[in-house]
């Protein structure tokens, strides 16, 4: 019944400068699934993501990739397992977009050689799969936010790691660009990529995630499970201190590109109107 666990997190504790950031986090990530980590600002989501890829050492508990503890893996070994799409970052230098994506092939390059013909082929495929083939010769410093984020995603894909991690990768994008990246993620998930993302967008997270981990502001695990199990009014209020209306729709899945054609139930979260707060 259970698929292979890529990643197993058990009773993870982490503190930073004497302050507990994460307490007793336990969950697993299965291959080919989309997992979203959610929670208020400062609840330790990004820290958790860093712990998952071994950039930080936990105080208690462990993060296991198969048989290995995450923080024991070298940068190179980890880069072969996980590709990261960072938050929007400043580009002080203008690269050709193709070269920018080729940075994802760094781990595969021999010390004395640049990208091989094979590497460039993978780069072009990655650009095509993120609908950015037309950007190939553009200068990275001149891209719009949406274009840059697609290129970053293409770079992570060119890395050909089984797991993709996104740290609020879409939070600075407008609705249209956000939507198109979500579609792309779902499509990738359907094609076997394991995705772990930190997201603030409850609607799209509920739509594309197989599992959601909800953290409390104190860094405790409120719930882990399917969107239906996790995103309840009580949980959301515990995580964000906001009351939401949860609406359920039935969608036939048509017109959404990667849809399966079956009708699926979709959750929509509507925060209480601002006026209701002022008159309790």
């Amino acid at each position: 019944m259970m698929e292979a666990q890529m990643l197993q997190i058990q009773k993870l504790d982490f503190s930073y400068r004497g302050k507990k950031v994460l307490r007793q986090i336990s969950f697993g990530v299965e291959q080919g699934k989309v997992v979203s980590i959610m929670g208020a600002n400062g609840s330790g989501k990004s820290t958790l993501l860093r712990l998952l890829r071994g950039r930080l050492q936990p105080d208690g508990g462990e993060v296991r990739w198969g048989n290995a503890a995450a923080h024991k893996l070298s940068r190179r070994e980890m880069a072969l397992k996980v590709a990261v799409v960072p938050q929007q970052l400043q580009q002080p230098f203008g690269f050709q977009v193709r070269e920018m994506v080729a940075m994802g092939r760094y781990i595969y390059q021999q010390p004395l050689a640049g990208p091989s013909r094979q590497d460039w082929k993978i780069v072009d495929e990655a650009l095509a799969s993120t609908d950015s083939a037309h950007l190939a010769t553009r200068c990275s410093a001149e891209l719009s936010g949406g274009e840059l984020q697609r290129v970053m995603l293409a770079r992570a894909l060119a890395q050909q790691a089984p797991v993709l991690m996104l740290d609020e990768a879409t939070s600075q994008l407008d609705m249209g660009h956000k939507r198109s990246i979500c579609l792309l993620l779902r499509h990738l998930g359907q094609n076997g990529k394991t995705i772990v993302q930190v997201s603030h967008d409850m609607n799209s997270a509920a739509e594309i995630s197989h599992k959601i981990l909800l953290l409390s502001p104190a860094g405790e695990q409120i719930a882990f499970g399917s969107p239906y199990e996790v995103l309840t009014s009580a949980h959301i209020e515990a995580a964000y201190g906001v009351q939401v209306d949860i609406q359920r729709y039935l969608s036939t899945g048509g017109g959404t590109g990667g849809g399966t054609g079956e009708s699926t139930e979709i959750l929509r979260f509507l925060p209480q109107p601002l006026t209701s707060r002022s008159t309790p």
Binding site: R53, R76, M78, A79, L89, G104, I107, P111
Partner: peptide
């Protein structure tokens, strides 16, 4: 020159470079 790829990766910042597999 032989480490041109490494220099490319460094321009992305050390955090990103580490994720791309560099022993910073």
């Amino acid at each position: 020159w032989s480490r041109a790829g490494l220099l490319d990766v460094f321009t992305q910042g050390e955090d990103v470079a580490a994720d791309l597999g560099v022993d910073i």
